[in-house]
């Protein structure tokens, strides 16, 4: 290797002033956890695309039923089972109802079930799991054993019983989904809290005299929130899917009210003659589920790059 002699001229250098020695000014601007998360998420192509798809689905579901000339439950026996056309973009069903309107009206129900079905189990899970993990001992043992027992009951049996009790509407579906879905997130949160509650930053607050409530809500839960949010994004598609499954089985939404699952069920009945009645809602449902799944994946990566496998 060739050695290079560098000529340095002393006059090129000046002494730093004392205040200039302080390098703090060149440090990047302070970022909070959530801002960092948003930055990572929005620089990811797949995340942005799937977020756009989800946004389009949400907007269409809200707007179309409002502006459409047809009612979602208005029968028109003069025009039954028509294929897609200029006046009925997605065609009509066996009772002559406009499918374009019905698909987006069903989107409202399905997406609402998706969102609430993600939020409620997470809420219940955080509270119960947080209590079990923080207090430990007998309380923890009791709660965890109850969860173990509930998890042993086959879900469908559970759901059918709940449906018998609550009837079948969107509210009943969300309720039953929350009642079987909270256990997973409770276990997650409990594990995290258990792991964190003896960490030094919690001890430090304890030594400073912080109360139980303060420890739980200011330190423990904010630190589990990342995982909870990931769980929530992941369970949106499973709630939508859950509703679709129930509706296809005839346990879910009943006509004339509609949802994507219910549209699929009606579509299956006429599948041989009028395939578009099945395919159109199926495609919309699949695209939405795909978008949510990818989004959930990317949210997980963006929340904690360490979790990526």
């Amino acid at each position: 290797m060739q050695k290079k002699q560098v000529e340095l001229d002393l006059s090129d250098f000046t002494r730093l002033l004392d205040e200039e020695k302080n390098g703090e000014e060149i440090v990047r601007p302070s970022t909070s956890f959530w801002r960092d998360f948003a930055r990572r998420l929005f620089t990811n192509k797949a995340a942005v695309v799937s977020l756009t798809v989800v946004a389009i689905m949400v907007v269409l579901s809200i707007v179309i039923p409002l502006v459409s000339p047809y009612q979602y439950d208005a029968n028109n026996l003069m025009s039954i089972n028509q294929g897609p056309s200029a006046s009925h973009w997605f065609g009509t069903d066996t009772l002559g109802r406009d499918l374009w309107t019905r698909v987006w009206y069903g989107g409202r129900i399905s997406l609402a079930i998706g969102f609430f079905g993600a939020i409620f189990p997470a809420l219940i899970g955080v509270v119960i799991g947080g209590i079990a993990g923080y207090f430990g001992g007998v309380i923890d043992m009791l709660i965890m054993r109850v969860i173990d027992v509930l998890m042993c009951v086959p879900q469908m049996v559970f759901v059918i019983l709940l449906m018998l009790k609550f009837g079948n509407g969107p509210v009943a579906i969300v309720t039953s989904f929350a009642l079987i879905g909270w256990m997973g997130s409770a276990r997650n949160v409990r594990g995290l809290v258990l792991q964190m509650k003896n960490q030094d930053f919690v001890n430090a607050s304890r030594i400073l005299g912080a109360s139980h409530l303060r420890l739980i809500f200011k330190h423990l839960i904010p630190n589990t929130l990342g995982i909870v949010v990931v769980g929530m994004t992941m369970s949106v598609p499973s709630a939508i899917f859950y509703e679709a499954t129930l509706s296809i089985l005839g346990l879910g939404i009943k006509s004339p009210l509609t949802s994507w699952g219910q549209l699929l069920q009606l579509g299956v009945q006429n599948f041989k003659l009028y395939a578009y009645q099945l395919f159109i809602p199926a495609v919309i449902l699949s695209i939405t589920l795909l978008a949510f799944n990818i989004l959930g994946d990317r949210v997980r990566d963006a929340l904690d790059p360490k979790l990526r496998n």
Binding site: F201, V202, N223
Partner: peptide, 11 residues
């Protein structure tokens, strides 16, 4: 505390 990385709440 001993470990300055574990003793401050990251949030």
């Amino acid at each position: 505390f001993q470990d300055p990385y574990a003793s401050l709440d990251p949030r």
